[in-house]
Design a protein around this nucleic acid. Structure first.
Ligand code: ZN
Ligand code: ZN
Ligand code: ZN
Ligand code: ZN
Lengths: 156, 156
DNA sequence: CTTGAGCTGTGTGTAACACACAGAGTTATA
DNA sequence: TATAACTCTGTGTGTTACACACAGCTCAAG
């Protein structure tokens, strides 16, 4: 099987197969006469596994680690159980950030609909964005830091 | 102001400032004697804007487009209003994918806790992952594609 | 044999920085 | 003033998971 045949059979691009080959997840043999890579049943099984794992959010690095066990004939089940727990935590982290960002964006869209268009000045590029962020910081620091002593520093 | 001074004043790393400089968002002058970059008030204002915009999820490319307007003295407000609407859509898209992935992961963790550890075979690397994905596809295709005709293809 | 379409491997680009590192500047000590 | 130690700078490269470009090769039709 050549790269495009494998790709078509699994519904991915040939470049994707080439990529996984390049990083060593697939190990096709090289045809001696034309140098083309020849994929076999084992590569097909590995490729299917890769797609399933990626579908669950596993990274290529995770898959490499998994293969490093299974290639020795060892079960990867325990490893996989641990990896997916970490994955769930990461996903919930990102989920929370998504929620925060989403509400920030919604609020900004509403607020901005009432605000005028301003032209940039030497201290403000777009008041919509710059003011939105200051609400975010709340009372942590009332005044934005500025290059106050810049003359004294520039004197060198 | 040198790169580290600006970075410290805004609470970012010097590498971040260098990065924004490298891609042209900041335009410090170069000191003629030692070649060090010298940042001024304008760079500070731009840097603050960048941080505010990034905090709202704007990409560096978005910020470049915004600057291309404001550097001409034009208001970026309308542009910014449009950009943030797109951003919200993208965020909700990603949010939905997060939700799907999260439930997939939770379900997998539960299901896998009842399943035994298996050793890899020639057709299955880790049944946990491979079987999980098949539930996902449901009845789209019952049997997984395999290199059935591989002999006929390999005959070349 | 020639032409042309199709396929292949390899090199490079992507986003937003982080890290490594050699060389230059700065400070301290003698 | 010399010299060692320490800090700072710019630049080159690495990161993720591919996608794209492209020259050269293969293979079937004529
Ligand atoms: Zn397993
Ligand atoms: Zn200032
Ligand atoms: Zn504006
Ligand atoms: Zn097979």
């Amino acid at each position: 099987m050549k790269v495009t045949q494998l790709a078509n059979k699994l519904g991915v691009s040939a470049d994707t197969v080439r990529f996984y080959t390049r990083i060593g997840l697939l190990n096709p043999s090289k045809s001696p006469n034309n140098g083309y890579k020849t994929f076999n049943h084992k590569d097909m099984v590995r490729m299917q596994f890769i797609l399933s794992a990626r579908n669950l959010g596993f990274s290529v690095e995770d898959i490499k680690v998994i293969f490093s066990k299974t290639d020795l004939g060892d079960s990867a089940c325990q490893l996989v159980r641990e990896l997916i727990k970490v994955k769930l935590l990461e996903t919930e982290q990102q989920f929370n950030e998504m929620v925060k960002l989403r509400s920030k964006l919604s609020k900004a869209i509403q607020d901005w609909s009432q605000m005028p268009d301003n032209i940039p000045t030497g201290n403000m590029i777009c008041h919509l964005i710059e003011n939105t962020n200051q609400e975010d910081i709340v009372s942590e620091e009332l005044d934005v830091p500025h290059c106050v002593n810049e003359t004294s520093t520039e004197v060198k």
